[in-house]
Amino acid sequence: MFDLKELERAHAIVGQAVPATPARGWPLLAERLGTEVVVKHENHTPIGAFKVRGGLVYLGRLKRERPNTPGIISATRGNHGQSLAFAASRHGVPAVIYVPRGNSVEKNRAMKAFGAELVEHGEDFQAAREEAERRAQFAGLHMVPSFHPNLVLGVATYALELFRAAPDLDILYVPIGQGSGICGCIMARDLLGLKTEIVGVQSTEAPSYALSFAAGTIVTTETSNTLADGMATRIPDADAFALIRKGASRIIQVTDDEVAAAIRAYWTDTHNLAEGAGAAALAAALQEKSKLGGKRVGLVLSGGNIDFDLFKRWVMADAPQAQKVVA
């Protein structure tokens, strides 16, 4: 997909807008897991999530290769759209972003604040994406997919930072939405010649990649009703799945209750706010706590963009009560 020199060049491009994010150990998290822990804080980027890196590299290449592009269009549950809106505004390119109805109010506001035209359509991400693809065809806009080599190249820059700061990680837990983050981690690890075990994390309510990994072929799901919207994927990307199948050791499924507990743990132990997908890696590590003794564990805190109302209903309540309120 790319070599180390390309990755380093991408890191320089991203660095013009995004300073390197911390890779930090936290004593209370270490106590909670019973082992040494390093957290990669992608919640500290200008959009509060790792996706900004992919947008910057993708838009930079698009402007060089197709300088007359009239505009871009894409679909998202939030962070991908914020990334594209942020990068498009820096390059002076109009951006249209489709989201499903009922999407995160605060992520919608952020995308519009970054300059995107926001359109609500359909009941889930897949429906929004299909409508965005139709509009791209008749409006002559450039359709930006959720998974693309240039997006992976961009987001892999956080993995480059992490592995250079902590090359001795035994295991790294990474949340999976459409797959760019974990693919970037796999690529960076392999290009640096490291032996870190990479474990993907999905929601029990949106387990398409986990089911595909177990079956050895792509498996889709009918719904993706997790409160951790960054992992709400029904249809795996074939290229992402191929790389994950080759480079990850396994994919763990976590419940919304486990994710809520992990969000609370991040807050009490580090005073960092994590969104659902951002806390999924910690939820998975807590699930496997008995296996982690003596290992140096990496956790990708991929983002911190959680609506305050959702935080109150889901995270601040006890898990059984939260399920009743959401239902």
Rank of each mutant, 00 (worst) to 15 (best):
P145I: 14
G115W: 06
L56M: 01
V119G: 08
A113K: 12
L84D: 08
G154H: 04
R134H: 09
A88R: 05
G60A: 10
N79A: 06
L118S: 15
S74F: 01
G78F: 02
Y98F: 08
L62D: 00
F138E: 11
I73A: 08
L160W: 14
A156G: 13
I73F: 04
Q126E: 09
P94T: 07
E133F: 00
T69N: 02
L118N: 04
G78Q: 03
K107Q: 05
H148V: 05
E161Q: 12
K63R: 12
S146I: 04
R129L: 15
S104K: 10
R164S: 14
K112D: 03
L59P: 07
I73Y: 07
A88H: 04
I73L: 15
G55W: 02
I97H: 13
P70K: 14
V155G: 12
V119L: 10
P149S: 11
V99S: 10
I72S: 05
R61I: 09
Q137G: 01
A75V: 04
F138Q: 14
R90N: 09
L153S: 01
H80K: 03
S74P: 03
G71L: 06
A85L: 03
E130I: 02
Y158L: 08
N108F: 13
G154P: 11
E123I: 14
V99Q: 08
A110H: 11
E131N: 07
T69P: 00
L169S: 01
P100Q: 06
G71C: 02
V57R: 02
M111P: 09
R77S: 10
F86L: 01
A75K: 01
A165C: 11
E123M: 06
Q137W: 10
V144F: 05
R90Q: 12
L56G: 00
L141A: 07
G102L: 01
L151I: 08
M143A: 14
V96H: 07
A75I: 01
K107L: 04
K107Y: 03
R129N: 13
A132H: 06
Q137S: 12
Q82G: 15
K112C: 08
A75C: 08
A95E: 04
G54L: 00
V93S: 04
E117F: 02
H91N: 15
Q82W: 15
V105L: 10
R66N: 13
A156I: 13
T69F: 00
F147I: 12
P70M: 08
Y58Q: 14
H91R: 14
E161N: 15
L151V: 08
K112P: 11
I97G: 03
E117M: 14
L84N: 01
V152H: 10
P100M: 02
V152G: 11
A132W: 00
G78W: 00
V105T: 14
S74T: 11
A127V: 10
L169M: 06
R164Y: 15
R164C: 13
V155Y: 12
A87L: 05
E130G: 09
A116H: 08
N103D: 10
F86A: 04
G140P: 01
L162Q: 03
V155I: 12
H142D: 15
F147M: 07
R109W: 08
G122H: 06
R101Y: 05
V144D: 06
R129G: 07
